[in-house]
């Protein structure tokens, strides 16, 4: 009984208080690490990260109705709950081999402002938080036509992840088809 009275209660409390503040600070520090959520999708070995903020939904492959006279990266249109949305196949733009999509393919609907498209992907891995400081620039001297579509890359357990800039992607002129508009300007 008497031994228990030898505990220096105030000191223990001080220690506890210090630990508490310490833990708070550490928590704050971790929170301060800037993170962005990415939807990880892939074509074969090529993994791409789409900023989750621009992803609206993931769909099983519906019937894609082909539209005549469109380039290869626009395989057609789908019905998204009553709204017609064009499908974009990134493979031709990224110079990846593009075979017929199988039933396992998915569509990731992405939107930014008024632009909306359904990206055709081979598989969806899921959401992943990427710490901004781990993002590296693409290797210098990469002379890839689509290099400006990426905001960088990160290495993770599953390998290389290329981070797509959906704003820039949606702003690409080859993603918007205006056949009559062009015709009018030419006529004028």
């Amino acid at each position: 009984m008497s031994e228990s009275q030898n505990y220096d209660i105030p000191k223990i409390l001080d220690q506890m208080r210090a630990d508490y503040w310490q833990s708070l600070e550490t928590a704050e520090l971790t929170e301060q690490v800037e993170q962005t959520d990415y939807m990880v999708v892939a074509f074969g070995q090529q993994r791409l990260g789409l900023p989750a903020a621009t992803c609206r939904e993931v769909l099983k492959l519906p019937r894609i109705v082909k539209v005549p006279r469109l380039p290869r990266h626009l395989p057609g249109i789908i019905n998204l709950r009553g709204e017609i949305v064009a499908v974009t196949d990134l493979r031709p733009l990224l110079q990846l081999a593009a075979g017929e999509p199988t039933a396992a393919f998915r569509l990731v609907v992405i939107a930014d402002g008024t632009q909306k498209t359904a990206l055709l992907v081979e598989r969806v891995e899921g959401l992943r938080a990427v710490a901004e400081r781990t993002v590296e620039a693409l290797a210098e001297g990469v002379s890839h036509e689509a290099v400006d579509l990426f905001r960088g890359k990160v290495e993770d357990a599953a390998g290389l992840l290329m981070l797509l800039d959906t704003k820039r992607l949606l702003a690409r002129p080859e993603l918007v088809i205006d056949q009559k508009g062009t015709a009018n300007t030419l006529a004028e």
Binding site: L74, I77, A86, T117, L175, V176, I177, D178, K180
Partner: peptide, 14 residues
């Protein structure tokens, strides 16, 4: 009638 969406602004024959 539906529009063709934001990506397909105008198409020939459609």
């Amino acid at each position: 009638v539906k529009g063709l969406g934001s990506q397909l602004k105008s198409l020939d024959y459609i």
